[in-house]
Nucleic acid binder design. Structure first.
Lengths: 193, 193
DNA sequence: TATTAATTTGAACGATCGCTCAAATTTAAC
DNA sequence: GTTAAATTTGAGCGATCGTTCAAATTAATA
């Protein structure tokens, strides 16, 4: 049995997701991974190195979910389900409502340079996935042919951020599902050039 | 000359706004206020105490701005200007794009209990102001009579968060002004019950 | 000006931070 | 079974954290 990288990354994701990059200490990670500092450092090099692997894995999963929406036959309907899902997590995992990327971005000014650039890349990567959703919905005529694709993709990312952020500050996230309908409705609505 | 509370609060606001609650150290504050630790502690009691005064002052200013929108004769037009303004800050003050409250909220899990509850209160207070804008716009018939007021207020707060967050991750915030138009457009659009 | 009260100073405390590395342990090779 | 290589261990490093408090300074009173 070599070092369980995959498992460690998943356990570290939980901690970073809950406490953020700055808020997470190496001792939190040592506890969560059940590893002593030397093992973690020999496997990941530094706290930043571990975080970057976590961010990479997290972004990949999220990107995959959005691309699955884009690749479905009914992208707008799948988008609805994608947006609604995080509102249904149980209380014990409430931190999972907030997107890890957006959460980390809030600490922007204090982040190491390497984390900053990877964060920017992650945001851009996810925006590409949102753009694929728009394009697919346009091709299935669920969206008008003249929709401004890049703006709509960025707007969609913004709606994602808004909903996730609001959901973390409300006692019952599920009660925000009307917002999902509003988003899809507005996506199909007016896009004055 | 007594202790310059007002001035200290404004200087501390700058630091907390830039670096967040967790990211700001007492030594950052000592530098910014040009005061030694004892003075700060005798005036504000603790880092948390100083932050709470900063948050209170900040919330008051923002609430006042939104209420000014609500009290104008053309609330929707004023809302446009209110939303557009932060997109125009110069590069050197880029951190001012992001709302201090939303920024602090991202560190939720690590915040002292007192900060958490004040943050919740601040968000609710600002939502009341957004609600006043909706109500006023309805009374001037800029908005339909059957708009769901509470939902629209929360949605508007979400749009505010989305725009401010996106603006911090883009090279030219001013290029997002189309989003302001989209927000006002969507506010006037469909609100399926 | 002498005396008291209020404020400011800054060295330093204990706790925690990210991280190191010599030693102990486990694994692999023969 | 013996030896060499790879991995894990955990005490502890220097730095920084929020905070304290005796001493120095400034302001107020008589």
């Amino acid at each position: 049995m070599g070092y369980p990288r995959e498992q460690s990354i998943q356990q570290a994701t939980e901690v970073f997701w809950l406490k953020g990059y700055l808020g997470t200490g190496m001792r939190d990670l040592q506890t969560a991974l059940d590893k002593r500092p030397g093992s973690i450092y020999s496997a990941f090099g530094s706290k930043e190195g571990l975080y970057l692997e976590v961010l990479n894995h997290y972004t990949g999963v999220l990107h995959g979910q959005i691309m699955a929406v884009a690749n479905s036959d009914t992208p707008l309907q799948q988008l609805r389900e994608f947006l609604r899902f995080p509102l249904t997590v149980e209380d014990s995992a409430a931190h999972k409502i907030q997107c890890l990327i957006v959460k980390t971005q809030a600490d922007w000014a204090e982040l190491p340079e390497g984390v900053k650039s990877e964060l920017q890349a992650a945001l851009a990567h996810l925006r590409e996935a949102f753009q694929a959703v728009i394009l697919k919905a346009r091709s299935t005529s669920e969206l008008a042919a003249d929709i401004p694709v890049e703006r709509a993709a960025m707007w969609l990312q913004g709606q994602f951020i808004a909903m996730r952020t609001l959901a973390t500050s409300v006692e019952s996230p599920a009660s925000l599902s009307w917002m999902v309908d509003k988003i899809v409705c507005d996506l199909c609505g007016e896009w004055a050039q």
